[in-house]
Simulated assay, not measured.
Amino acid sequence: MARVADLTRHHWQGWWHAEGGYHSYATCIPIMATTLESLREHGPAGAAFLRFGRDHRQRLTDAIGNPRRDAYLARRQAARQEQRRRKEREAAEWEARRPACADCGRKFTDDRWEATRPPRLEQRPVAPASV
């Protein structure tokens, strides 16, 4: 098995994805090996399979998966959802602060709202004091 693993390394070996903390196997083929003894001992649904590049036997469904990548993608998706919720919450707060016309009750447009605000003073850089 070690010789076959070594000869086929370019087909199954992934590369480290530092940002996510996992190995990426996007263009690789997962190659598993087992023995009849392992199958007899653990059964076909048990931890009888060794995926090339890993140091322990696993169930077949676990051996073909990439749990670190799955966890990274789940964290990234959760962060995106939280960012979307935060933007929606900020937009709702912005709308809640938007003034309405005293006569008709319609909310001001962004341009009208900006026109009702006092002008902003531009921040000018302060010149350094001379010594």
Results as ranks from 00 to 15, higher is better:
residue 117 R to I: 02
residue 14 G to I: 08
residue 55 D to Y: 09
residue 45 A to L: 14
residue 84 R to D: 12
residue 91 A to D: 09
residue 21 G to K: 03
residue 96 A to R: 14
residue 34 T to S: 15
residue 121 L to V: 11
residue 40 R to P: 01
residue 4 V to L: 14
residue 68 R to F: 07
residue 22 Y to K: 08
residue 129 A to S: 04
residue 18 A to F: 03
residue 82 E to H: 08
residue 120 R to Y: 06
residue 72 Y to D: 00
residue 131 V to F: 00
residue 123 Q to P: 07
residue 9 R to K: 15
residue 101 C to P: 04
residue 24 S to A: 12
residue 80 R to K: 12
residue 129 A to P: 00
residue 63 A to N: 08
residue 103 D to E: 14
residue 8 T to W: 08
residue 130 S to V: 02
residue 33 A to M: 15
residue 41 E to T: 13
residue 57 R to Q: 14
residue 32 M to S: 09
residue 48 A to F: 00
residue 94 W to N: 06
residue 64 I to M: 11
residue 23 H to Q: 12
residue 72 Y to I: 00
residue 33 A to N: 07
residue 83 Q to Y: 13
residue 15 W to I: 10
residue 76 R to M: 08
residue 69 R to Y: 00
residue 10 H to Y: 09
residue 35 T to N: 03
residue 104 C to V: 11
residue 119 P to A: 09
residue 116 T to Y: 09
residue 80 R to C: 03
residue 62 D to R: 13
residue 105 G to K: 04
residue 42 H to Y: 13
residue 48 A to G: 02
residue 2 A to R: 15
residue 96 A to F: 02
residue 22 Y to S: 04
residue 16 W to Y: 10
residue 119 P to V: 06
residue 46 G to W: 04
residue 120 R to Q: 13
residue 56 H to M: 15
residue 58 Q to L: 15
residue 95 E to S: 02
residue 99 P to V: 06
residue 28 C to H: 01
residue 26 A to W: 07
residue 82 E to S: 13
residue 113 W to E: 05
residue 79 A to M: 11
residue 50 L to P: 02
residue 39 L to I: 15
residue 44 P to N: 02
residue 59 R to T: 15
residue 81 Q to N: 14
residue 76 R to F: 02
residue 74 A to R: 12
residue 7 L to K: 12
residue 76 R to Q: 13
residue 52 F to A: 07
residue 64 I to D: 03
residue 14 G to C: 08
residue 84 R to V: 12
residue 18 A to L: 07
residue 32 M to R: 07
residue 76 R to Y: 03
residue 112 R to L: 10
residue 86 R to T: 12
residue 95 E to D: 09
residue 130 S to T: 04
residue 80 R to S: 07
residue 108 F to K: 11
residue 113 W to M: 03
residue 92 A to M: 04
